[in-house]
Computed example of a mutant assay.
Amino acid sequence: MSKKTTENIIKRYKRYLKLERNFSSNTIDAYMYDVEKLLIYCDDKGLDIITMTLDDLQQFAAQLHDIGIGAISQCRVLSGVRSLFRFLQLDAYRDDDPTELLESPKTGEHLPEVLSTEEVDRLEDSIDLTKWEGQRNRAIIEVLFSCGLRVSELVSLTLSNLYLDEQYVRVTGKGSKERLVPISDKAIKELEYWFVDRSHMKIKPGSEDFVFLNRRGGQLTRTMILIMIKRQALEAGILRTISPHTLRHSFATALLKGGADLRVIQALLGHENISTTEIYTHLDDTTIRKEVMAHHPRNMRNFNK
């Protein structure tokens, strides 16, 4: 197969991701980055994606390991490759999908870091409200924790999608899918305090509808929020490595501990598959085990006689 034919197929695949899968630009870029690794491998080995066999793909997977790519990153690359081969079969470039039997490396069970409500309070209480961005940062942390938003959803949150009287926010998630998420009284209060400060800002044209702004009146970036939360964790004496996503995990875990149905949590988080949400059941199991080890008399190392 000629290089030009391959390029045309990849263009069609990219269009498929955009128009039929409705993926965001960032997600499409990630998929194309993974596919590029496969194309480089094919070029080196004199292979093409139309005639690749399962054995060829297993050799490709082995090379990912040999060049030092970690198990989690290998899984991500192979996920992108599977998507490409499903497209090739769907568009009749191939009769089969050799990735159906392609195994991913075992990554081990990795449970995400979570914060307790008390730790979130410490995070917020450590903010210096005498600084212009202080109240904005409190509102950001509280909205992340109270609504379980992705950081990308937070930076794109608009005033026109806030329904504070009804205690809902409209969120645009992955694949441009919208969902309504309840917002707590505390988050609403922190937002209202921030809106007082926001009303005195000079806002850049085009940024008027964004809820959260930087000091120049423009839209915040994900990196800015990541840096802020890491810095605030140090100020609060939280020594674990946390990120904006930690607050999303904490939101889901708090709901599960409170008795919320897993399907409800799935809808609130905007997960397409329930399997993604099920990790929080493992988190809760871990917490239960810690409680038993700490408090059951057969497990306590030190107890009053």
Rank of each mutant, 00 (worst) to 15 (best):
217 G>L: 03
230 K>S: 10
179 R>W: 00
208 E>I: 04
225 I>L: 12
200 H>K: 14
237 G>A: 06
188 I>F: 00
252 A>L: 11
211 V>S: 03
279 I>H: 00
212 F>R: 08
224 M>K: 10
259 G>M: 14
262 L>K: 05
212 F>I: 11
257 K>T: 07
206 G>F: 10
240 R>E: 06
219 Q>A: 10
265 I>W: 01
246 T>A: 07
274 I>G: 09
197 D>C: 10
197 D>E: 15
188 I>L: 03
176 S>Y: 13
185 D>F: 04
260 A>S: 15
182 P>M: 08
270 G>Y: 04
202 K>M: 12
280 Y>G: 01
232 Q>I: 03
279 I>V: 14
176 S>K: 12
246 T>C: 09
252 A>K: 08
208 E>H: 02
180 L>W: 08
259 G>E: 10
221 T>F: 07
253 T>G: 06
203 I>F: 04
252 A>S: 13
247 L>H: 04
257 K>M: 14
188 I>Y: 00
212 F>A: 07
179 R>E: 00
204 K>I: 11
175 G>P: 09
183 I>A: 07
241 T>S: 11
225 I>P: 05
252 A>G: 11
235 E>W: 01
222 R>P: 06
206 G>T: 11
219 Q>Y: 05
219 Q>D: 03
283 L>W: 04
181 V>L: 01
198 R>F: 12
240 R>G: 00
224 M>W: 05
255 L>M: 15
181 V>G: 02
254 A>T: 12
275 S>E: 15
181 V>C: 03
197 D>Y: 14
249 H>D: 09
197 D>Q: 14
175 G>Y: 08
174 K>E: 04
180 L>N: 09
190 E>L: 00
265 I>Q: 02
185 D>T: 08
210 F>W: 06
242 I>R: 03
267 A>Q: 14
